[in-house]
């Protein structure tokens, strides 16, 4: 039996960022959002572990109220309990880690914490480590393959210079990469059934957390202006190819990069 806590973030869809053309500010309200790509794989992996070894999957999202949407999606995929801790403002990973760990302590014991290797929008890749640190349990990060047996987990971490295989007793925090699995697409009947499930809401103060303040604040976010020259050479007609390549080579010489 494995009881897993999965963290999912209500993330911006970075492919569809809505940008104010004048100020370059990101229009957060108008940008569509979804469950993070790696978070979804963490959830999928937790469900697979439950299917194999029995147990329970508890999902937690710390985010705005509309994040209900991805918690219903989590139910449809097979989560057993979903929790939302509503926060309206943006917070740093230190804050989120504090809330997350408090939740772990109050709803535990858990055998496993599963998170995405990095969130789709902020991509910090540090939340799992911060939670492990606060809970004083080991972390196996950026896992592309894992195996659970007798209260022990063996997992392969894809890191900068190669593949590391780690073994740890549970409880442990595991963060996953995109390669670990292909998440299931819920069937219509599961989606309909999920709609009837209850999303539990807890407030930060319910958890008995005193004042926690962010140790990093974001003062400004602006979309990059793409300042590339964007000189287009058309070689879709093969008879132009020779001429186009000569032109390209000349440009590159002028730029001093050949």
């Amino acid at each position: 039996m494995v009881r897993t806590l999965v963290g999912i973030k209500y993330s911006l869809q970075v492919e569809n960022l809505s940008i104010d053309p004048k100020t370059r500010e990101i229009l957060l309200d108008e940008t569509p959002k979804k469950m993070g790509d790696m978070d979804k794989r963490a959830l999928e992996e937790a469900i697979r572990i439950k299917e194999k070894h029995g147990g329970e999957v508890v999902v937690l999202c710390i985010g705005p109220k509309e994040a209900n949407k991805i918690l219903l999606e989590a139910y449809a995929m097979g989560a057993d309990e979903a929790y939302l801790i509503p926060v309206e403002e943006f917070h740093d990973t230190g804050f989120i880690a504090n809330v997350f760990s408090k939740f772990y302590e109050s709803k535990g014991p858990f055998d496993l914490v599963m998170l995405g290797g990095a969130s789709t929008d902020s991509f910090s890749g540090t939340l799992g480590a911060r939670i492990a640190s606060l809970l004083n349990i080991p972390i196996i990060p950026f896992v592309s393959k894992l195996d659970v047996e007798n209260n022990e987990i063996t997992a392969e971490s894809a890191l900068d210079d190669g593949k590391y295989t780690y073994k740890s007793k549970m409880p442990v925090v595991v963060t996953v990469t995109l390669e670990i699995n292909e998440p299931r697409i819920p069937k219509l009947k599961d989606i309909l059934r999920a709609k009837r499930k209850k999303i539990n809401e807890l407030s930060v103060s319910d958890l008995g957390l005193g004042e926690i303040s962010d140790l990093v604040i974001t003062t400004d976010v602006k979309a990059y202006e793409e300042k590339r020259k964007q000189v287009i050479l058309d070689a879709s007609d093969p008879s132009k190819l020779d001429e186009v390549i000569d032109k390209l080579i000349n440009y590159l010489k002028e730029e001093g990069v050949l």
């Binding site: 911006l12 970075v14 492919e15 960022l17 990101i26 789709t120 929008d121 902020s122 991509f123 303040s213 962010d214 140790l215 990093v216 604040i217 974001t218 003062t219 400004d220 976010v221 602006k222 979309a223 990059y224």
Partner: peptide, 13 residues
């Protein structure tokens, strides 16, 4: 941030 589409300014408290 945002997959490299935007640049955030952050300050340590």
């Amino acid at each position: 941030v945002y997959s490299g589409k935007a640049l955030a300014k952050e300050e340590v408290k």
